[in-house]
Simulated assay, not measured.
Amino acid sequence: MTTSRDLLIVTMDGEPSRLVERGDLSLGLAGAELIDLLGAQEAGLHGERVVPGLAGMPDDPLLRQAASSLVREEPYESVGDWLWRRGRGLSAAYLSALEADGQLVRQRNRRWKVFWTRELVLVDTEARRHAANRYRSDEPVLAALTEAIGVREPGGEPPKVSDDAVERVLAALEDALAELAAERQRRDRRRGEAAVDNVRRGY
């Protein structure tokens, strides 16, 4: 299992009241991938730039795809740019991968007495138990990632990550999430202003 798969599983296993925005999850998954690539020496950091490593390709298909997508020419790519580029639509890709692996199934639910919907639910697998154990044990990297995207309630001392490169990835992730939240606020404000204007015009 990879950190990104563990992150998706614990997010789906979280409290229904703590819904995670799809964009936040995608950025978190991209950050988790980069952390795993750093740990496997598939990538390294030179300052704030992501440089390709020399190790062999990972076994996990999505992590292998991530390694293949690393920019391999100078000046390389900043961690923030990696998060935005790699994170685009990444949550959907991981959902599809877990479903293909049999870790997610589509469950029929009756709503409104008329319409039927299908939603993905986790299967009780070894991968799910592994992710849950890692989360419950407060493993620092997964704890920091889940706190960043809103799965885990912040409280007390922040998770202590000893690796400087991982800390830089987490810091860049926090910046990207803050930027995304600010963009959502701007969009909401523009929609609110447009609604007020329409009322004034009689629409």
Rank of each mutant, 00 (worst) to 15 (best):
D24I: 02
R186K: 14
E73I: 06
P158M: 09
G47T: 04
Y135M: 11
A97V: 01
N109V: 12
R186V: 12
E73N: 12
R72L: 07
A100T: 06
D36K: 09
G31E: 02
S78E: 12
R168H: 13
E193P: 01
T3A: 10
E174F: 02
A178C: 05
H130P: 00
S137L: 10
L177R: 11
H130A: 15
Y94R: 13
S26P: 01
A66N: 05
T2L: 09
Q65V: 04
A32K: 08
Y76P: 02
V79F: 01
R186D: 08
E99Y: 08
A43G: 13
E119D: 14
D101G: 11
R64H: 01
G156Y: 04
G47P: 04
L54D: 13
D24C: 10
L27W: 02
N109R: 15
A32S: 09
A148F: 00
R88C: 05
L70M: 09
R136C: 05
L83S: 04
L122N: 07
R111M: 09
S137H: 10
L7K: 04
L19P: 00
A181P: 04
Q107D: 12
L54G: 08
V161P: 03
G150K: 06
R49Y: 10
L95C: 06
S26E: 02
V141S: 06
T11S: 11
L142G: 02
E126H: 08
R88G: 07
L173R: 05
G39D: 14
I9R: 11
S26Y: 00
R190F: 07
V79C: 07
